[in-house]
């Protein structure tokens, strides 16, 4: 089974995040890059499926040069190889452009199963996996908390507002995972060493057959018109409990008409 895991490098949520003043896109230079946490669950699920059913796990990343850090980590966890789509023309792509670009690469490298994290911690749109399914015309098995494969049939539990749906489809398919699906492994020393020798193919937009006017800021179908720092919250009142802390809160709530 040919499994492709889509991995994104994102700014570390612990470091301050900024927008660039000139075009209001994320200033990726300002923050340290780490693998999008939910993508680690996607990698883990791919590795578990490979261990159970055989096959190969390919990591696919679209992002700047330095996203190689995340690729190495994914390879160290156990993925077999990687494809890195890197091109200045892609910078500033919105979800439409990004899903188009990834579709083009997937079309080239082929897949039985695409696994993504259900959203990224920076953009948080939660749309990309569904958009990929739409573009590829394959089943959308997103927000999955459990994945099972049986021959060419795939079954997932899809988290919903009311509980979950049991969903069934035939491969190939696009899956997105939520964090409760598994516990991602840490790369072992052996894994880290082995990762250095694993193949990483670098593709430009042209290599992948991506039409430049459909991606990047210029190709985006939406734009940020302004961005400002939120006014800091007015400093609240903080009291130390002296046996009446609960009563004090009740008084505050009453003053605000909550009770």
């Amino acid at each position: 089974m040919n499994i492709v895991v889509c991995v994104k490098q994102v700014p570390d949520t612990e470091s301050p995040r900024k927008l660039k003043s000139d075009d209001n896109t994320l200033d990726r230079g300002a923050a340290d890059g780490v693998i999008n946490e939910l993508d680690e669950y996607a990698i883990e699920e791919a590795l578990l499926l490979k261990e159970a059913h055989g096959g190969e796990v390919t990591v696919l990343t679209m992002g700047p040069e330095k996203a190689t850090d995340s690729i190495r980590k994914a390879l160290a966890m156990g993925a077999d190889k990687a494809v890195h789509l890197v091109d200045d023309a892609l910078a500033g792509s919105d979800a439409l452009g990004t899903s188009y670009a990834i579709q083009q690469v997937l079309g080239r490298i082929g897949f039985d199963l695409v696994i993504c994290g259900s959203e990224s911690t920076d953009a948080r749109t939660g749309m990309l996996p569904a958009m990929l399914a739409e573009r590829l015309g394959v089943p959308q098995l997103t927000l999955s908390s459990k994945v099972e494969i049986d021959g060419s049939t795939i079954r997932v539990q899809r988290l919903t507002d009311y509980g979950y749906d049991k969903v069934e489809a035939a491969l190939p398919a696009v899956v997105s995972v939520v964090e409760k699906i598994n516990e991602p492994r840490y790369p072992s020393f052996k894994g880290i060493m082995a990762a250095k020798k694993k193949p990483v193919e670098t593709l430009s937009a042209a290599d992948a057959g991506i039409e430049a006017d459909k991606v990047g800021l210029a190709g985006a179908a939406s734009e940020v018109v302004d961005a400002t720092e939120a006014p800091p919250r007015a400093k609240g009142q903080i009291v130390t409990d002296e046996g009446d802390g609960g009563v004090k809160i009740a008084e505050f709530l009453a003053s605000k008409k909550f009770i």
């Binding site: 394959v138 089943p139 959308q140 098995l141 539990q157 899809r158 919903t160 009311y162 509980g163 979950y164 749906d165 049991k166 969903v167 069934e168 489809a169 035939a170 398919a173």
Partner: peptide
């Protein structure tokens, strides 16, 4: 293509 076979509320 992605059939909901059961809803668990």
């Amino acid at each position: 293509s992605a059939k909901i076979v059961e809803r668990v509320v």
